[in-house]
Design a protein around this nucleic acid. Structure first.
Lengths: 126, 126
DNA sequence: CTAGAATGGTACGCTAACGTAACGATCAAG
DNA sequence: CTTGATCGTTACGTTAGCGTACCATTCTAG
């Protein structure tokens, strides 16, 4: 019962453009793609999140995750907490500031979505 | 007549997560946010596109645009062409390879969109 | 012609992120 | 205990992007 597929490729790219361009314009803390990916995983996927888990999930190296967490932690978008049940592991936790940032970001996307006209009935070939 | 606003914030972020994570996993040529912004502008907005125009549009410095175009050109995603009517200006042009890349990217987004269930009638408060 | 503005690129110093390799801390098996 | 595996981090050398300042080329006014 979804009408999502009614979005043509051109419209999908338009959605992406509006969102990304607006983010650049606002001079948001410019997270790399990997940092953004990690942030989104932590906030939209069920806990717990570990360094190795994130690395495996994204098919990148552990040090890359460590560095991304350094950056995200420095922005106070996530926080590290050692797992008391296995003190080798680090649990990545959410923060208020991270939630606010992603909320705003979702608003950006939604705003872009709403300005795109969607054909509700016809799903064009191209 | 759009039902786009029926996407709740959580779903919008989920869309973003799926797309970005998939991109990272596939080890796509990892364009920075700015590079992606420029690429999308060039391909979804009407020509002509100049360095100063892009810089103004994104509120970033001209050298940043120059470097982004270096990178995009090196990937053969765009091409530079001096404007014969004003040889100071550089026109940024599209390429087949860039079109293919963005087509694939649109496919990524569309695929993510289709896996997200959309409430067609009720727009929840939260 | 010439002076000044406009355009895009280069130079420079700096910061950030990358992958590989190594490391200390911690856990699990015996 | 002790040995080996696991987890996250650090070290290192490299690459890439940033903004400011400056430059060569080109156009436009007068």
């Amino acid at each position: 019962m979804s009408s999502n597929s009614a979005l043509r490729p051109a419209q999908v790219l338009e959605l992406w453009r509006r969102t990304i361009v607006e983010g650049v314009r606002r001079d948001q803390p410019d997270l790399s793609t990997r940092q953004m990916a990690i942030l989104l995983i932590v906030y939209t996927q069920p806990a717990p999140h570990t360094v190795r888990g994130l690395a495996a999930n994204l098919a990148i190296s552990k040090p890359a995750v460590t560095r991304a967490l350094d950056r995200l932690g420095q922005l106070d978008f996530v926080r590290r907490k050692t797992d008391e049940d296995d003190r080798r592991s680090v649990l990545v936790q959410r923060t208020v500031k991270g939630s606010v940032f992603l909320s705003d970001y979702a608003g950006l996307i939604s705003a872009a979505l709403e300005t795109i006209s969607v054909p509700q009935i016809i799903v064009p070939l191209a």
